Amino acid sequence: MAIPVKAARLCRLAGRTGTSLSVTHRPRRCYLSTSTGNNLQFRLDELTAHSSLDLFKKNTAVIYRMLGLDPTHVPSNPERFRDWAVVFGDEKISGGRHYWEVTVKKSQEFRLGVAEVLMSREDCVGTNSSSWVFGYAQRKWFAMTSNKIVPVALVGKPERIGILLDYEAGLLELMDVEKHAIIYSIRAQFKTTLCPAFGLWDGELLTHSGLEEPEGLK
């Protein structure tokens, strides 16, 4: 389904600053076995990818295509996001601590985080209570869930960013991969199976999974 440009921007910028998003400084059948340990290994799930997204590098990277010009050839199916440029990772998460990184240098508008596997394919990540993301748009970082946005005081945009999920502790953290430091944390209560989630409206993202958690964070 082609998304009007104005509608896409409304999705990207939707929300209001709200204190109910607890932040502190510092579906598709995901078909691999449910992960409860570390070293999460995943690829992007083509069956979930919106028609404006194409996967490459053996489904570890995603590129945004101009709507109406070069849509993906993945046929429509119940797992696919129909209205928003979102794609899920193919690994289920029901517990444990997990760390992965994303090269973001070739995109100016994106969202990175996690979502419930059974999240509605009519929604955009960050706009409901089933997804938790960090985003970048208009040269600014933010944390987002339930359509509420909290600015993240991160100057500039690094080439690569880290995501750390602690399921039992209810933490999703944005990481500085060079300093091995936590930039921002979202606190939540995860009650069901999650998977990595990505939104993209410009350029491309490259995922890096199967990584060891940086030392000194526990």
Results as ranks from 00 to 15, higher is better:
151 P>L: 09
213 E>Y: 06
187 R>Q: 10
216 G>L: 01
83 D>W: 13
124 C>E: 09
185 S>Q: 15
57 K>E: 12
188 A>M: 02
85 A>Y: 04
196 P>D: 04
203 G>C: 07
6 K>T: 15
209 S>H: 05
63 I>T: 14
161 I>H: 05
135 G>Y: 04
54 D>N: 14
120 S>N: 05
30 C>D: 07
30 C>S: 11
35 S>R: 10
112 L>F: 05
179 K>W: 01
188 A>N: 05
16 R>T: 13
15 G>W: 04
154 L>A: 04
146 S>V: 10
40 L>A: 02
62 V>G: 06
69 L>V: 15
153 A>F: 12
179 K>N: 14
48 T>S: 15
97 R>E: 12
66 M>D: 13
49 A>S: 12
179 K>Y: 03
84 W>M: 05
201 W>M: 02
121 R>G: 10
53 L>H: 06
132 W>R: 08
17 T>Q: 12
94 S>E: 15
44 L>W: 05
180 H>K: 13
89 G>D: 05
42 F>P: 07
50 H>Y: 08
141 W>N: 06
191 K>A: 10
40 L>K: 02
41 Q>R: 13
62 V>R: 03
134 F>T: 05
52 S>H: 10
152 V>I: 10
176 D>C: 05
24 T>C: 10
44 L>C: 04
93 I>Y: 01
156 G>W: 04
154 L>I: 04
103 T>K: 13
19 T>W: 11
218 K>P: 06
115 A>D: 06
48 T>N: 00
189 Q>D: 10
202 D>T: 09
185 S>L: 08
175 M>H: 01
130 S>R: 13
150 V>F: 06
74 V>H: 04
48 T>H: 00
114 V>G: 08
69 L>I: 11
96 G>R: 07
157 K>A: 03
121 R>C: 12
194 L>E: 00
9 R>N: 12
156 G>Y: 00
175 M>S: 00
204 E>C: 15
154 L>K: 07
188 A>G: 10
5 V>G: 01
50 H>A: 08
34 T>Y: 07
118 L>P: 04
35 S>D: 07
